[in-house]
Design a protein around this nucleic acid. Structure first.
Lengths: 239, 239
DNA sequence: GCCGTTCTGTGCGGTATCACACATAAGGCG
DNA sequence: CGCCTTATGTGTGATACCGCACAGAACGGC
């Protein structure tokens, strides 16, 4: 069976009333979002707002030294390109597809007129942005205070929540880039999790075997973020 | 000479057109913002939006362990209480006055009607929020990759930019809480900066003696944030 | 089935920061 | 002035993570 594509695979779009949804529908274009694609670059101009459905997009900052760190992650729970409606049109960060899949895009001009009307789309976009802010804040806190292993757990759970299934296609090298740590550190932490039967991984494929255990091992940051997403975007219940 | 209080000491308010400013003026109440006052608590409901003029407000998150970390800082450049117009009405973080002074407050109900009109206030509030997001993102990155001394420089500059004068009333203990590090670490880093003649401090009073040198010693994060504030809020030129 | 590439495992010395324990110093106030 | 509180300075050992170097293992194409 082939899964039929629908904008409603994106929870934000699925939350719109039928009326607003149908109004937007003609302007939503299905697009593939391939691994590694930079949805936008630091300081770059955006022409579209993106609604991921089966893909995962990381917001990250790349330093002068080349080191990087993830600021937040988005999938079927949200949208990519908040600067379009926040008014800046660009940001110092990059957005990169971390897990290939699909999404829908909306022309910036359409979005802007729609947003200015002050309807549900505006309302949802702003609430989503607040949830995103919480994620970023918690990332800052987590970077400061928590051990690598806990951060890895948080990252796994946040990513999994935004994808169908319980599997992630991601090398430890890539995860290290996201967390802003050494690859060896991820190897060690992931090794422990695997030894304890929480996950299984092999050459870029990570499977979560025991999610409850993972949730007991993660730091408080995950729950704070999850709770805030649930509160702000109620029907955006993650998969 | 006594400095006359005016809402225009807040750069956001000063950027409004005379028309919108005068429209808002009757609803702006001058209030003192004493040191340590929690403008809002984690999860707490907000009744007012605050525009600091001579005070400094930290957005911070306090962990279960009691450890804390600053997420962002606001002063005469912005406003406190974005969740009011973002739609969430509360956030998991706290906002605490770090440097006593004054500010103006606006009733939540007034703000909400004003915001819904889609005028300059909405426009400015959203652009400010985007700048704030940049600050939070950069805090996350800085926490991950930069040494304590550089973070201290960043913190000093960001704070100073949001206050009149070149002096900060702040103990090393408090700074440590903000940065989420030990007090001893701050003592050591600040000691070096003082030995090199960049700053002078004594019992909770820090004076910046050589700002150019400080700017050469800070990590890139400061410039990224400053540039983004200048870009998004042009006439909000900091003191 | 072989071989190159990619991914993961491991060991080593270095360093920043940690937690804890005190020592010193600088005001505030009687 | 003398005393108490608060702020800052310093030392010691522990630890988490770093950078680097290289070994082993799994897959993919020929």
């Amino acid at each position: 069976m082939t899964s039929p594509h629908s904008p409603k695979q994106n929870h934000l779009l699925a939350t719109l009333s039928e009326e607003e949804y149908n109004h937007l529908l003609p302007d939503l274009d299905l697009i593939p979002m391939p691994l590694g694609w930079a949805v936008y670059e630091s300081g770059g101009h955006l022409n579209y707002l993106y609604f991921p459905t089966t893909s995962l997009v990381s917001l990250l900052y790349v330093m002068e030294s080349g080191a990087s760190a993830e600021i937040a992650i988005t999938g079927n729970d949200g949208l990519v390109g908040i600067s379009l409606f926040m008014g800046g049109d660009s940001t110092p960060s990059r957005a990169v597809v971390q897990s290939a899949g699909n999404g829908y895009r909306l022309k910036a001009s359409v979005l802007k007129t729609e947003f200015a009307l002050g309807g549900q789309l505006q309302h949802l976009a702003l609430r989503y942005t607040q949830a995103l802010i919480t994620q970023m804040a918690q990332t800052a806190v987590c970077n400061r205070h928590h051990a690598l292993e806990q951060q890895l757990c948080r990252w796994l759970l946040l990513s999994l929540d935004r994808l169908p299934g319980n599997e992630l296609l991601m090398t430890q090298e890539l995860i290290a880039n996201m967390l802003g740590v050494r690859r060896e550190g991820v190897t060690e932490a992931a090794g422990k999790l695997q030894a304890d039967g929480l996950i299984h991984y092999s050459r870029g494929r990570i499977t979560v075997l025991d999610r409850p255990k993972l949730e007991r091992r993660v730091c408080e940051c995950y729950a704070v973020v999850k709770k805030e997403y649930d509160r702000l975007l109620p029907s955006t219940t993650l998969i």
